[in-house]
Design a protein around this nucleic acid. Structure first.
Lengths: 197, 197
DNA sequence: TGTACATCAGTGAACGCGCGTTCACTGATGTAC
DNA sequence: TGTACATCAGTGAACGCGCGTTCACTGATGTAC
């Protein structure tokens, strides 16, 4: 029933899951090929049937990050309707995402300046795409109410900066201690939006 | 002339300089005790006469970060007088600092989520102090012109978030390509200040 | 359907390497008299 | 000032360990006839 190809891609998924789990625990750059292979349940040598080295695994993990950021935007668009309460609702959606995808989020933030140039470039590309999409969303929703923003992209950039900075702080906090942070983050965004009108 | 204690603290300085140089090149978490010792010109075993382990060296490096952030504030206070051009002047002072202390800045940003809990705590403490000092500065200078900010601390938090985020991007750019970034950063700050009045 | 051969994901042993840490030591500096 | 002893920063060799990588291999899956 399960073909050779199926089994292979199955093992690949296990390697990615293992990499994600371990990088959440001790940071991607501290991972060894051997421990990822062991966590995934294969021998170190078999790792090479799937990736040429750890960096390739890392880039595969970043693909997952991209997917999950796209999912975040989709959820936000569904749950958040433009208006005075948009900031608060967005922040709640975002915090939920951070808590559910902590490992992916840690990878994104933790390797922003570490790692190899290829890795850094991939991360900045993901973040850029994210900023641009939010910029477009802002432009559209403020055009609807006929109060266009001065510079939607600049606004998006500032919002993403505060959101990711405070999101990183949230990672170290137990979920029940995040309320204050959520509130502060909402105020940050409102402040930025106010200043960009 | 040079006492035993002098020589010892001299070697300690060399270890710190070595750690800073190497962590700028490949990231602090990728450093080995042996290579730091070699770079400083001593044997690996002698490292232990100065620090019990690499983490202690790391905390010593963070002390340097604290010193240099304090120096940055001092310079900014000297060069930047409150007024419409404050943002631009502050950003220029900051960019100069980033270029001159790239290694310290990389350490601060790169280990924000990596490393051990003690390390993370030390970094967040430094950044917190920085935010509070800027918050106080903002409060004072806007009180003078009788247009107090709604929440100086919140404003400072947002400003530091964008400043550090874009500063991190600047680290990867050659100095002559930073002009656009400097301009954008200035606009970010003006936007935040506008929104917090 | 059955047979003979090809493919290839995963194995297990082996390699050389840099690592952190220990230890007994050396010899210059410091101290007491 | 000179002598005898104590201190201690730095040395060099040794250790066991986990690492990335290679290699010939196995045996299940796939393919051709």
């Amino acid at each position: 029933m399960t073909s050779r190809a199926d089994k292979k891609s199955n093992t690949r998924s296990k390697l990615i899951a293992a990499g994600l789990k371990l990088s959440g625990q001790k940071g991607y750059s501290a991972l060894s090929l051997r421990e990822v292979a062991t966590e995934a349940g294969i021998s170190p040598a078999a790792f090479y049937k799937h990736f040429n080295n750890m960096e390739e695994l890392g880039l595969a993990l970043l693909d997952e990050v991209g997917l999950s950021l796209r999912k975040l935007l989709r959820t936000a668009r569904k749950n958040v309707e433009p208006g005075p309460k948009a900031a608060r609702a967005s922040v709640e959606t975002f915090m939920k995402f951070v808590n559910e995808n902590g490992n992916l989020f840690k990878l994104l933030l933790g390797e922003r300046q570490g790692a190899t140039p290829a890795f850094r470039r991939a991360i900045h590309a993901e973040m850029d795409r994210f900023v641009h999409e939010i910029g477009n969303d802002l432009e559209r929703s403020y055009a609807v109410v006929r109060q266009p923003l001065r510079d939607p992209l600049l606004t998006a950039e500032a919002i993403v900066a505060v959101v990711f900075t405070l999101g990183a702080e949230a990672l170290d906090l137990p979920q029940h201690k995040q309320t204050g942070l959520t509130k502060r983050l909402t105020q940050h965004i409102q402040m930025i939006l106010r200043g960009s009108q």
